[in-house]
Design a protein around this nucleic acid. Structure first.
Lengths: 218, 218
DNA sequence: GTATATAGTTAGATTGATCTAACAAAAACA
DNA sequence: TGTTTTTGTTAGATCAATCTAACTATATAC
């Protein structure tokens, strides 16, 4: 059994891991807002528990067991977010903070029941995949809207870094997952996009926004 | 903000309080399975936070503020139990342990949403009253089945000390809140009751069981 | 009403999670 | 390549929550 604190370290390691699965102590420290010496000592502890590969001055890596544990926590988080949106009628911009607390509930049956009531969803309200019971998660390869070209028709599949402010911004523009839109123009000087969807005929999206919108091409 | 640990002490104090609101250090220690010196030091801490009246060698009492905080935790616990039973289809014998974890979630809006979805229930699945947002709770005065007489017709209104084993015992006998039954006989030697309800024409209930069943007379 | 048992407190140690200060290694820079 | 900056580690302190051992006050019992 891992402590709540340990769970937070595992989750952060999982989320920060780059393509090779490596995370620096400094990144982790910043992400958790915990000073580096504290992080180092926790890494030694998790290393002793065989959850993290730790060697002095080397980048951190989760072990297979560590990945599994982290994946299960993320599973709990995302199932909870889905439950909050689908069954409790919260907005997608409200659920992150609540899920952050519920993800530490130990009762497995609680989350299995959620899963069942939701019909075993594969993605959360922000389009992120929900890991299976073994913590395994399958990432679908989406493109960023910012990498698309003029004239393309796309479907909004997921959002990156789903902060409340960003999601509220999308809400005010009636943008939600599944939305189909067409790229009318791309401004050269600031890389902003002009798109059309539903009743929005000329909505301008800044480059910052387009980088956070993941889409499927139609 | 109180720590999870502090919340557990407050809740225990609330639940153990007798009619005068007093609790002994020893009782609290046993109830929480925490040694007495630890309890003493926590009481000094909560006293500094104005949540408990503490004087050396005197019984403990929650302050008004302490009662409020404790009441709110119990509100969260009982709303959660109700939600788990009504909306997530758990059995009443399964929900205590899960609610024990969820009651520490800080998000107030989460519990207000539960309350709303449940239609603002006044009692939990075991018949215990749900405190209001200020932690205030109104106890209805019920009788114990064990205090009733032969021939009386009663309605099951609540159960005391709703341990999983006890509730499973009731389940196997198709006993649930609202059940109407008639007392056919009381055995003198062991104070067991013979009752009739639904299709059960001669169900025998031990004295221990009858003491845990709270009823309204019809 | 003294002796004994029970309940409660004090003192001091331990563990987990954090910090700061000081130092060491690795990376970036010039 | 040598210096500076950034990153990471070690050592030691602090705080919350727990414990045991030893002591004290209150309650119970004869």
């Amino acid at each position: 059994m891992n402590s709540l604190t340990e769970e937070n370290y595992l989750k952060a390691l999982f989320n920060l891991a780059n393509d090779t699965g490596e995370v620096n102590v400094n990144e982790l420290s910043k992400s958790l807002d915990i000073k580096m010496p504290t992080v180092t000592s926790m890494m030694k502890k998790l290393s002793k528990k065989k959850l993290v590969h730790y060697e002095s001055y080397k980048p951190l890596r989760l072990t297979e067991e560590g990945k599994k544990e982290a994946g299960i926590i993320i599973r709990k988080h995302r199932l909870t977010e889905m439950f909050l949106v689908e069954k409790m009628k919260f907005g997608w911009e409200e659920v992150h903070d609540i899920a952050e607390q519920l993800e530490h509930v130990q009762s497995l049956i609680f989350f299995e029941k959620m899963d069942e009531l939701l019909g075993f969803p594969k993605i959360d309200p922000h389009g992120s995949p929900i890991p299976d019971k073994n913590g395994k998660m399958i990432w679908k390869e989406y493109s960023k809207l910012s990498d698309c070209k003029v004239g393309e028709s796309v479907r909004l599949a997921a959002v990156i870094n789903s902060s409340s402010d960003f999601l509220k911004y999308l809400n005010t523009r009636q943008m939600q997952l599944g939305l189909e839109m067409k790229i009318k123009a791309i401004e050269v000087f600031d890389k902003s996009f002009v798109v059309t969807y539903d009743k929005h005929l000329n909505e301008t999206l800044s480059h910052v926004v387009c980088e956070r919108l993941l889409i499927e091409k139609k």
